[in-house]
Write a protein that binds this DNA or RNA. Structure first.
Lengths: 183, 183
DNA sequence: TCTTGATTATTCATTGCTGACTGGTCACGC
DNA sequence: GCGTGACCAGTCAGCAATGAATAATCAAGA
């Protein structure tokens, strides 16, 4: 009855590496460097994980590499997309954009046990959280404009943070005026 | 100069299990069942992971268990918080509530490569995403009221989804009217 | 009563992730 | 011309996560 579920759960980390390599051939270290510098809002990919993803995608035929020597440094693997890789990228991008996946918000587990604390203490703690969020928001506002769609991600995070601040304010107000928020 | 960084990155999954066991003693299967039924908005804890966390926390002295036999079913480990466990719970809760941790939003990697597609195709795909989000939002509105602070998490997700819908609408409008959104 | 399938409860083999390590090159002062 | 520390590039051992398997009970029909 319900077999039209072509539930392509894509791996965003693969999409990311493919997308970056599509823009320029690179070796693993370089990829990780770029991600650390520019995409911390999207992902938290560790260096060894980058290498292992590169291996996997090479084995699948999505990437190829050639050894490149610069100066008398040890040779490095410079990866590029294969034609298959380009197709996979397109397919993954389509899947990613057309699909919604639940985002689990860091810190919500704490919220679920808010009633374990007296309301005034809870409010005090959440005011601290609010402060940290406000700082992060300020920091994001200060980030210089990026090129291309990367800018979009920054704007998105800014929007999310701004509305999260509003929500937290409302919750704190509730706690301060009323008491425990259970109906 | 900056050594007051008592950066206690807590493990929300541990906080979750401690919090649940604080409310009632349970065995591993029961814990996972409850989490699957009521806390999918917060976490995606797999059953074997629950057992391994229970083992770890028992080894640390946060939990104890007693074998319980019901009928002639095989005996089960029923876990309870130790006094240490209660302290750890309180500390983790305080840390969780007073702290902000960046949430990486699922789907943002796709956004980062939006300019790989012609704007009208991008808009079409994002309209699909919007539809899926709207469905999820409706589903959340239909969820019956939960007891205690769990309700809070549901309200939070509803709020997030609502504002995400607004943001997506704005982005789609931009794409449709203007073209690629790079400055 | 005996076969079948669903539910309960846990364990295990495999795979994946990452902190720490290795082994270079470079820059710079002495 | 030789330490010393910073940077570059990749690997690996050990732990964490999970799909699949196990094993036992129960329910229910034939």
């Amino acid at each position: 009855m319900n077999n039209q579920e072509s539930n392509t759960i894509i791996d965003e980390r693969e999409l990311l590496l493919l997308g970056l390599l599509r823009q320029a051939n690179m070796h693993g270290y370089q990829l990780h460097e770029f991600i650390e510098a520019n995409m911390t809002l999207c992902t938290d990919l560790k260096r060894p994980t980058v290498y292992s993803l590169l291996d996997r995608m090479t084995a699948r035929g999505w990437l190829s590499f050639e050894m490149a020597q610069e100066g008398n440094r040890p040779p490095r693997r410079v990866y590029r997309l294969t034609p298959t890789g380009e197709h996979v990228f397109q397919a993954m991008l389509v899947a990613s954009l057309s699909t919604y996946t639940l985002t689990r918000i860091a810190g919500d587990v704490g919220l679920a046990f808010l009633d374990a604390l007296p309301p005034n203490q809870a409010a005090a703690l959440l005011r601290q959280r609010r402060q940290a969020m406000a700082a992060a928001h300020q920091a994001l506002l200060a980030v210089p404009k990026h090129r291309g769609s990367l800018q979009l991600v920054i704007e998105h995070q800014r929007h999310v943070l701004a509305t999260e601040l509003d929500w937290l304010d409302a919750l704190i107000a509730r706690l301060e005026s009323a008491g425990v928020p259970q109906d």
